[in-house]
Design a protein around this nucleic acid. Structure first.
Length: 250
DNA sequence: AATCCTAGCAACCGCCGGATG
DNA sequence: CCATCCGGCGGTTGCTAGGAT
């Protein structure tokens, strides 16, 4: 059967937006609000695909966007959140008021990736690239360092040119989001080899707070009892609540 | 001055999942 | 339960500006 195209491609403009198009889109959304992107282009007199309008509005025209360079605080927050969430750019963006997922994704690919590499960390896993020093060993050895209240600070404060990629300078892959998280985590649903789910829907149905917390990387005991999951973390598993304006992660 | 290379960013594409009939 | 619609997401592409040669 196949899906109908989201718009009639033959009669739509592509590429960079003109000032006139921007103005049409802005004035239409000001008058009518967001919603029904599919019909918006026609109603607004734009020869654009609805998706394109949505993207343009969200990533560039929205009045609450914060333009300009990322601050050091935003950098660190992105790194932390990426360690926790992976490439869930929209969730990460939800924690950075005024920033868009596209912006963060671009920033990650152009700046932060390199920053992590210069620290000798794998941008995907946030683990040391050094293969001669397995993570497990590192974990044990650096746990004490991590207990130092400034350890996480040190971990994230490697200077760009400092050659921090040399072995022994990593402070371990520990996040400091008020909780004792490590980066051996994934948001993915549990996958027990013995009982493989036949469909994503089934897998979802079997996700429990217990399995969730283990996959989030909580230490047994301590924060994670696997019995008493903080409500906020169950929430986290479903969706990350956007920060209110001015609110921030400690 | 011309050409090449690279980084940065805006925009597109294809897929996924929730909502709806 | 199924088919379809639609919004949203993440990955990727392509254009452009600026620096290097």
């Amino acid at each position: 059967m196949g899906r109908s195209p989201c718009c009639e491609k033959a009669h739509t403009n592509k590429g960079a937006w003109t000032k006139e198009e921007d103005e049409k889109l802005i004035s239409y959304i000001r008058a009518h609000g967001e919603g029904c992107w599919r019909s918006l282009p026609k109603a607004a007199g734009l020869l654009r695909c609805g998706k394109s309008c949505r993207l343009r509005w969200i990533n560039y025209l929205r009045p609450d966007l914060k333009r300009g360079n990322f601050t050091a605080e935003e950098d660190e927050l992105i790194i932390k959140l990426h360690g926790l969430l992976g490439n869930k750019w929209s969730l990460i963006a939800g924690r950075l008021p005024g920033r868009t997922d596209n912006e963060i994704k671009n920033y990650w690919n152009t700046h932060i990736k390199r920053k992590l590499l210069s620290r000798g960390l794998d941008p995907k896993t946030h683990r040391p690239i050094d293969v001669d020093r397995p993570f497990t060993a590192l974990k044990q050895q650096d746990m004490s360092a991590a207990q130092d209240s400034t350890a996480s600070e040190k971990y994230f404060s490697g200077d760009e040119e400092g050659g921090s990629s040399s072995t022994g300078r990593h402070k371990g892959c520990y996040l400091d989001l008020d909780l004792n998280l490590n980066l051996d985590l994934s948001i993915s649903l549990p996958c027990h080899p013995s009982q493989e789910q036949s469909s994503p829907r089934e897998a979802k149905a079997q996700a429990t707070p217990q399995s969730l917390c283990c996959h989030l990387g909580f230490q047994t005991g301590g924060t994670c009892s696997c019995q008493n999951i903080p409500k906020s973390l169950v929430l986290l598993s479903h969706s990350i609540r956007p920060l209110e304006e001015g609110q921030h992660i400690a």
